[in-house]
């Protein structure tokens, strides 16, 4: 099993990496690039804590081989803040107390971001459906839903 070369753009920076064929995207992002915002929860696709955006679509990093990410553009939670300023979704999660232990939060925010990028004013049911693949054991989801909902009224062009 020899290592193979992949090229991927992670948070707008291009990386050429030698990875093992059996390496998952979680391992590559966390261990090679130090992006520990990608959380490994269940490691079998149930919890959604490892969600990252691959070419704008949310995917589970634990179920994606790094080889499959060759040539794609990946966005992780670390790529959301810019110029030292948090993304409005991150702000909103903090303001609404939607973060307790924080383990599910990166996945929740990445999936919400993908939803809002596609549909800037989703209904409550659409938010619930989009987040149905993400588990949180602390908040009971109500505050998460409120946090996402509150950002839908903000014009993304104007910022928070």
């Amino acid at each position: 099993m020899k290592k193979l070369l992949i090229t991927m753009t992670v948070n707008d920076e291009q990386f050429d990496l030698m990875v093992r064929p059996n390496e998952t995207l979680t391992e590559t992002l966390r261990e090679r690039l130090g992006l520990t915002g990608v959380k490994e929860g269940c490691a079998e696709g149930v919890c959604g804590a490892c969600a990252v955006l691959m070419d704008q679509h949310p995917v589970r990093a634990c179920l994606t081989l790094s080889m499959e990410a060759d040539g794609t553009s990946i966005t992780t939670i670390e790529g959301l803040a810019s110029d030292g300023k948090l993304h409005h979704l991150q702000e909103s999660f903090i303001n609404h107390g939607a973060v307790q232990c924080g383990f599910c939060t990166p996945g929740m925010i990445m999936v919400s971001k993908a939803l809002l990028d596609e549909k800037p004013s989703p209904t409550d049911d659409e938010i619930k459906e989009a987040l149905s693949g993400n588990l949180c054991r602390c908040t009971g989801y109500k505050k998460i839903l409120e946090a996402v909902r509150s950002t839908t009224q903000i014009d993304p062009k104007k910022g928070a």
Binding site: G48, M54, H57, P58, V59, R60, G133
Partner: peptide
């Protein structure tokens, strides 16, 4: 699965 994640993969 879940709409936003498994459906794209």
């Amino acid at each position: 699965g879940a709409p936003s994640i498994q459906r794209h993969r």
